[in-house]
Design a protein around this nucleic acid. Sequence first.
DNA 1: GCACTTTGGCAACAGCGTTGCTTAAGTGGA
DNA 2: TCCACTTAAGCAACGCTGTTGCCAAAGTGC
Lengths: 369, 369
Amino acid sequence: MNGSRTKSQAGVNLPALRHHNAALVLDLLRAAGAEGISRLELAERTGLTPQAVSKITARLRTEGLAVGAGLRPSTGGKPRTVLRLVPDAQFAVGLHLDRDGLTAVLVDLAGRPVAVTTAPLDFGAPAEQVLADAADAVRDLSAAEPHKPVLGLGVAVPGPLDHRDGVLHRVTGFPQWDGFPLRDALAERTGLPVTVDKDTNAAALALSLSGLPGDFAYLHLGTGLGAGLVLGGAVHRGARTGAGEFGHQTLQLDGPLCGCGGRGCIEALCLAAEARGDRAEAARVLGAGAANLVGLLDIDRVVLGGRTVAADEDAYVRGVRAVIEERAARGRGGGSVTVTVAGGGDRPVAEGAAQLVLAPVFGRVGERG
Amino acid sequence: MNGSRTKSQAGVNLPALRHHNAALVLDLLRAAGAEGISRLELAERTGLTPQAVSKITARLRTEGLAVGAGLRPSTGGKPRTVLRLVPDAQFAVGLHLDRDGLTAVLVDLAGRPVAVTTAPLDFGAPAEQVLADAADAVRDLSAAEPHKPVLGLGVAVPGPLDHRDGVLHRVTGFPQWDGFPLRDALAERTGLPVTVDKDTNAAALALSLSGLPGDFAYLHLGTGLGAGLVLGGAVHRGARTGAGEFGHQTLQLDGPLCGCGGRGCIEALCLAAEARGDRAEAARVLGAGAANLVGLLDIDRVVLGGRTVAADEDAYVRGVRAVIEERAARGRGGGSVTVTVAGGGDRPVAEGAAQLVLAPVFGRVGERG
DNA sequence: GCACTTTGGCAACAGCGTTGCTTAAGTGGA
DNA sequence: TCCACTTAAGCAACGCTGTTGCCAAAGTGC
């Protein structure tokens, strides 16, 4: 109930209250997974009374979003009824448009993929062609569950864009997309509500909704270096969806020239080390950037991903962890920061794109969303 | 209504809804200042119906928090009644404990100081002595408005701490404060509810509530270098209130040794340049760090403050702005970032400390607060 | 002076979570 | 086997929220 106030419109009336509490309960059901959760646990976690939870879950059951799933062992009285989300009540489509390929995935309410399509893609081709290919993939995928509602289409793209109106800015190397209204164009072709976001934000959202606790940064090292930030439990996009520009942070004042025109950028240093086979140095550079980020934002975890990291996960995790721990030892000895890798290569990006659609169902809207 | 979900307890019932909407209206009244705002504008801004706003403002008027303040010019019908916050209905005390001095300020609901006290302070003295001095200052100040309620005491301290339980961690150079429960100790001695935060966060909060729009970073360059971040309209504190560790970001890999034990920290580079009289280089270094931050978080504005900046505001603003603009020109040409200075030296810190108490009244709670 | 516009309060209302109570469904000792 | 006890969950009444429909108040302008 906090966050930006600048645009206002934050007044809450009864329908909004009802929707909020229902989303809250749905989110807890989702987090509980197949094991389920009892009404009384829901009441305890939400701060609502058990009776209120009973009413809310009754509505969810009539809508087909929740069902009973057995009983808990008795603790001396009537056993608790366990409630569970019905994952295949609704679906969402995620679409990852990359420079050289397209991945589309149909996920259920629990975020699990039920159908996947991949296809080569020339992102430099005329917009009409790219849009047609994308719309075809989405249409094929939607047919996989013909009788269940598809809530919408989430799209992850590499370049800078405006998350609110879904208009692309100039994607590096593909000037023809500058100013292109991708959201509206795809909405028209697919007939679905469309949400667009950066690929790193989608990956971070997928990680956040997959149960990763606390605040974290997702660092993606592939052909470039970018970051997705989850702060206060929500994806931080910034005023212009530009947050996460990590690769061109200056890490070496007056250092070697980078392709962006700057000097001493993390991306340039890191990829140069990788190119000359010095993986330890690449990891150390990435670690220094990660440590900067950890200190600045006081996050709990750093998650590494991308093709370059996937090639030698251990080396990168060890190298990054070493730098962060060394710096933490010099500062306050407080909470330890976890360094892990995101498995699955680029798959999380497409799934995260689908989560752009599902997140609002569970009350998980980004700040300034 | 977004933000962290990990700790739950986010269920909203009718009293919570009422409180939220009342705080929302109060915040708009505060932002409108002495000019006031009409019921219909409030309705438009909140998304509530005019009748709901009428009910809410009627309650606020009976509580003495709002009053009518004249009429707007008619636009062809009955003129709108303007409502205005009653700033002296309630007060809050802000306390800034610095290494060598103490500043206490009594502010009204509008955040305006009505009484100020400064005193020398030896932060290295025994805790009992420091607490007694602080409590005395607070008591004297509260007496300035004897018949009006003082909502609480906000305290800003230099070192790392936990904002939630108000316990200090080891303040650099003052090991005796490590683990000291400052919040509870001061609450006992003053009889007021106490909120504790880092000095840079307090300054950032003061700037945010004083009407600075959008997201921004406050960079404080004095004896050290720190930052306060306002993201999504709220102060970002991070998991352990440690966010804003800016001075020891690595900006020059393997650069000169810093007092913290690291190499190439912004603070070391910046203060070294300042020490040898090269102010342009100091500003350039600060600008490089600021540009990193702007890119990472996609913020709208950078605010500079602190004694070192105050000594030559123009040089720092120009230097920082130059680096940010140069880097923006290389990236997407999007929204321009504003670079300004926070006037008033250290005064905003004490006022921001008081705002720690006032912020919840206006529904302005930090994430994970 | 009268028609019109706009503001804002009054009264009735729908719907939210809460409270008080009852029923359902177990455990465990006599 | 029975019965007292415990715990879970629904029913009914309720208080309070913002909303809706209506009307009085207070201006403008022909």
